Simulated scan of single mutants.
Amino acid sequence: MDAMELPQGHVGLLETDAARRLLGSKELARVAYTAADGTPRVFPMLFHWTGDEVVLSTFAGARKITALRARPDVAITIDVAGAPPQALLIRGRAEVTDVAGIVPEYRLAQYRYGTPEQAAAALASVSHPGTRMARIAVRPTWVGLLDFTTRLPGGTTAAEFARRGRA
């Protein structure tokens, strides 16, 4: 699929090679939400892409659970800081579900981000009777993609972007 054919905001951008790479990467998702006191927060989190939802997990009692239930609108960035930088920008509403035990996507994320040994150790350290987690699922309603080669900020061409800031 040619990313240049789709405007910023089109959920079809999730089907591009760049988006698929970022969704399958070991980069953290940076999740922006509004805290209970009304101020903005950004929190880096492991994530799992199901093909329909970005799924994040946290342990019961985390303050973000209450905040997300009260104000479910979120923005997520998954990005690479290398040259050229790449960023997948997602907006949607968080649906929070309480889970007894380990969220299945948390388990999958642990294995994607670490070695099998690291994942098994991390899961063993939290998997015990009484463990409670929250599954935070975000179905994208708006998607942006910047790869700084074919898709640039402001929808400019590479030549226009190179001239920015010059008199």
Rank of each mutant, 00 (worst) to 15 (best):
A29W: 04
D147C: 10
A109E: 12
K64F: 02
A75C: 08
I136D: 00
G165C: 05
A19W: 13
T156Y: 10
G38V: 06
G61A: 01
H10N: 15
T34L: 10
K64E: 01
H48K: 02
R30S: 07
A137L: 01
A36F: 00
E15W: 01
F161A: 13
V103Q: 00
D37L: 12
A36W: 00
L56A: 08
P140E: 07
F43S: 08
I76Y: 05
R93T: 04
L123H: 13
Y106I: 03
R63G: 10
G82H: 15
M45F: 04
G9M: 10
P104I: 11
F47V: 11
V99D: 04
T156V: 13
R69M: 08
M133W: 00
D73Y: 09
Y106H: 12
A134H: 00
A36K: 12
V74W: 01
L28E: 06
R112L: 11
L6K: 13
I136Y: 00
Y111H: 15
T149E: 10
P104R: 08
M4D: 11
T157I: 10
G92N: 07
V80F: 15
I136T: 04
I90G: 01
F43R: 06
A124W: 05
P104Q: 08
R132M: 09
R91G: 07
G38D: 07
G51N: 04
E105L: 03
